[in-house]
Design a protein around this nucleic acid. Sequence first.
DNA 1: TATTGTTATACTCTATAACTATA
DNA 2: TATAGTTATAGAGTATAACAATA
Lengths: 162, 162
Amino acid sequence: MNKPISIASESTDLKYVCDRTLRRFVGYHIKRASNVVHADLAKTLKPFGLRMLTYTVLVLIVDNPGTRQSQLADAMDIERPNLVAVIDELEELNLIVRDRAQTDRRAYALRATPKGLQLYDKAVAAVLAHEEELFDGFDAETTSKVIAAMTKIWKQGTELGS
Amino acid sequence: MNKPISIASESTDLKYVCDRTLRRFVGYHIKRASNVVHADLAKTLKPFGLRMLTYTVLVLIVDNPGTRQSQLADAMDIERPNLVAVIDELEELNLIVRDRAQTDRRAYALRATPKGLQLYDKAVAAVLAHEEELFDGFDAETTSKVIAAMTKIWKQGTELGS
DNA sequence: TATTGTTATACTCTATAACTATA
DNA sequence: TATAGTTATAGAGTATAACAATA
């Protein structure tokens, strides 16, 4: 963070110039970090036959048995239609089931199968191990501050968007 | 941040349960924040005829006149092929030009046109104003810590990926 | 009327492999 | 042989509009 900033146009390494530019563009730092997190996550999940969306949905269903698709979409901040194919995929893999909700026959109550629970354990362990590498050197306070900041941005963004 | 955590499976609002789950999954907080940042950015840039990638490339070219496509790809952490269409688009809009590099006839030296410089001023102002809303309540120290953390994750990720 | 899940569709961002022209 | 830019292609993630079934 303390390296000198080069503005020479003949610079062979754009990275420090880039830092100068992007310092006035906070969102891009977040996006760039999100990129590497996503790339790492995808690589970690591949051996389990999962991708980011199927993993996230599986985790949320295991932790919240009986939840509905509209609740998932709300929590994940994506539109309902995008969830359909994800749920289909998890169902075809026999990791979850769509039970009819008892109080509302329009909705489904989503639950993990035993196979889904098993995969959940393994996949979560792998992801956490990988995250520890990715966040190497972050103490608990920094981690918690980052989470707080990200959550705040998310809440602010969903408010502005509506 | 201080609300009680509900683990009841009949919960009508998944958000607090979700926080519990995702607390063990830091990357998703970043991705979720990145989502709203991206959505907000896209909306802000639309009146200017720009999207996230064209905006970012325009900013980098204006701030680093004469830069090459491979340097841009490196700084933005994307693959070279993905930049071609972006550069094409900016060129068709008469915002930048591809000059032949003098020392290497394989490469292009990218420069903004007067029209590109004008749009840059307006678009950057709009984005910064919007970011101020999105990061409302973040003091300078928090902002700088978030940037430092995101940069560190990005660097760690690019090292792990190679 | 409003909501749950769905279909259809399109756009954006990203990645890989293989090509060309220079170096 | 290596690099700069390119083409072609595919795969994720996201968004909007419109529909059927149910509330």
